[in-house]
């Protein structure tokens, strides 16, 4: 059984940068018990010696000589920010 305590849920919420109301924790516990219980079924399957890579595609990065000119997308990107000051994105001070 995969029982998750309210503290476990709060810890996951903290890692996920989400705020979970105390009132919604019991429902989440129930959901997770069902879902994690279900997906745990894979732990008993023998995987043999197969690896977990498949892609035959390699060297997908573009070469440096085709770089676009500096600043070409700057305004488009900054315009998306909810709060900016000049060419900076404004946020609350961290320290």
């Amino acid at each position: 059984m995969y029982d998750m305590s309210p503290q476990d849920i709060e810890r996951l919420a903290e890692l996920s940068r989400l705020r979970i109301d105390a009132a919604s924790i019991p429902a989440l516990q129930k959901d997770f018990q069902a879902i994690v219980g279900y997906v745990s079924s894979i732990q008993n399957i023998e995987t043999g010696n197969t690896g977990h890579t498949r892609h035959d595609i390699a060297n997908v990065m573009r070469s440096d000589d085709e770089a676009y000119e500096s600043g070409r997308f700057t305004q488009d990107i900054l315009d998306q920010s909810p709060d900016r000051e000049g060419d900076y994105i404004r946020v609350k001070k961290v320290l």
């Binding site: 890692l15 979970i20 959901d31 894979i42 732990q43 890579t53």
Partner: peptide
């Protein structure tokens, strides 16, 4: 939110091998 929490769980320390890594091997299989 449920799926973000679930994903955070299967990738977290102590559970990564049992869930994510195992699932990746089974994907290969």
């Amino acid at each position: 939110q449920r799926r973000i929490l679930l994903g955070t769980y299967v990738l977290s320390h102590g559970y990564y091998d049992a869930f994510y890594n195992k699932a990746m091997y089974l994907r290969g299989a």
